[in-house]
């Protein structure tokens, strides 16, 4: 469904991605793991068009979206939920969700999708008239994901949804992602929290310095001594 091949990204003199290749199939959750600065966020940004790669290709559902403009990529159903949630802070929760429906001309359809999000995340329904910036970190993450759901995504690119959240909240975010996936949306999940990510993922990739160093089914990665040592905090 998503095929990234030989992707190179340079920031000025920094070679952030070095010929990275990965695939995500329909209905899969794929975890992308690695340390800070390994190139995880850059991979997502290059896929969604926020960053222009210097080499390689990104193909989504048969469309070559390499270096495409972000709003076009979103229109194809490949939707990026950026790091740090990026909720529109002075707009209400409801307005944030409505923005997810920007490309949908049929307002009744937008309302239906928003109602679905409220059903999935009742906390957002309670806070629909509140400004996005006043929500807690976990609620903002829910809103960022809910907003992306209103776009009608076929695949989500999630960047560190667990960042800065308490363990219980992390668990509920992961549960939400698994539930969204169970309803048919593919997910590429970037995480520092490898335990949480491998708990719901089908497969995973580990990258270091912009290069792929490991990949395999999630269950295998969980037991791989190199992953355990580097990312799961075990010795």
């Amino acid at each position: 469904m998503l095929e990234i091949s030989g992707l190179d990204v340079h920031y000025g003199g920094v070679h952030a991605l070095r010929g990275l290749s990965l695939t995500v199939g329909p209905g899969e959750i794929v975890a992308l793991l690695g340390n800070n600065g390994a190139g995880k966020t850059t991979t997502l940004a290059a896929a969604s068009g926020l960053v222009r790669p210097s080499g390689g290709t990104v193909v989504f559902d048969g469309h070559d979206v390499t270096g495409g403009r972000p709003h076009r990529v979103t229109a194809l159903g490949l939707v990026h939920v950026p790091e740090g949630r990026r909720v529109f802070s002075t707009l209400t929760v409801h307005e944030n969700l409505q923005l997810g429906g920007y490309l949908v001309r049929d307002q009744a359809e937008v309302r239906k999708r928003i109602d679905r999000v409220y059903e999935l995340l009742p906390r957002l329904a309670e806070r629909r008239a509140q400004q996005g910036g006043t929500l807690s970190g976990g609620e903002q993450q829910m809103l960022a994901i809910g907003r992306a759901l209103v776009t009608g995504p076929r695949m989500l690119l999630l960047d560190e949804p667990s960042m800065g959240l308490a363990p219980l909240v992390v668990a509920s975010v992961m549960e939400l992602i698994a539930q969204i996936n169970a309803e048919g949306t593919a997910v590429l999940l970037v995480e520092q929290n490898a335990t949480a990510a491998l708990g719901i993922a089908h497969r995973g990739y580990v990258i270091e310095n912009g290069e792929r160093v490991l990949d395999g089914p999630a269950a295998e990665l969980r037991d791989d001594p190199r992953v355990v040592e580097a990312y799961l905090g075990g010795v």
Partner: peptide
């Protein structure tokens, strides 16, 4: 309106607005 919401969203964060499918 939808258009006005897009304007306010861009004023706050143009990058994230583009990820909503808005042609900034």
């Amino acid at each position: 309106t939808r258009e006005g919401r897009a304007m306010r969203a861009i004023a706050l964060d143009p990058t994230t607005s583009s990820l909503m499918g808005i042609d900034v």
